[in-house]
């Protein structure tokens, strides 16, 4: 087999690999402010599952994080403080582990002693539905299930804004 023939076969093989591999589950663009939050069923780390409907009538702060992400780690204290401060209010906080192994994300929640619901998004299915490409990404959803805000990155750099956004969905 000469070089050109070899190259042709290699290119054909690589393109075939690409075509066959291209049948994966695809992502969506980021959920828009003003849209209805997409329904989900999240496997909780403590067992069982939570669905979006379980939070009906309450504000919901849903944040997508990974254990390896420095910004996710930086954001945790502020989220914890907010969840404690609003414990008796009609608002829930939900932590969703993405782009991570379940074991490592479980360790992450134990390390931070997360005082609110935390689940693992196997295969990043919910993240894809919400259009989340990188952690941390946080959505503020009002009691009618409408997305009021989306924030990308380290929440700890905007503590005042974060507190205000939480109040907006109360």
């Amino acid at each position: 087999m000469n070089l050109i023939s070899f190259c042709r076969r290699l290119c054909a093989a690589l393109l075939l690999v690409a075509l066959f591999s291209a049948c994966s589950e695809e992502a969506k663009p980021l959920l828009q402010v003003g849209e209805k939050a997409t329904p989900f069923s999240l496997e909780m780390l403590g067992g069982g599952a939570r669905r979006l409907e379980d939070y009906a009538g309450k504000g919901l702060v849903i944040t997508f994080m990974s254990s390896w992400c420095p910004c996710s780690n930086n954001s945790m204290p502020l989220l914890e403080q907010a969840s404690v401060a609003h414990k008796s209010d009609q608002i829930a906080f939900l932590l969703v582990g993405i782009q991570d192994s379940r074991k490592k994300f479980d360790k992450f929640t134990k390390k931070w002693n997360v005082p609110f619901d935390a689940g693992y998004d196997k295969g990043d299915r919910i993240a894809k539905d919400y259009g989340v490409s990188a952690p941390p990404t946080t959505f503020f959803i009002d009691r009618n299930g409408i997305v009021k805000r989306a924030f990308y990155g380290d929440i700890s750099v905007k503590p005042e804004e974060f507190r205000q956004w939480v109040k907006e969905v109360l």
């Binding site: 291209a22 994966s24 663009p29």
Partner: peptide, 16 residues
């Protein structure tokens, strides 16, 4: 939007 919707496949093609 179409780019993001097909990002998984496009990444594989990028690898090739």
């Amino acid at each position: 939007r179409p780019l993001i919707s097909n990002l998984g496949s496009l990444r594989i093609i990028a690898g090739v």
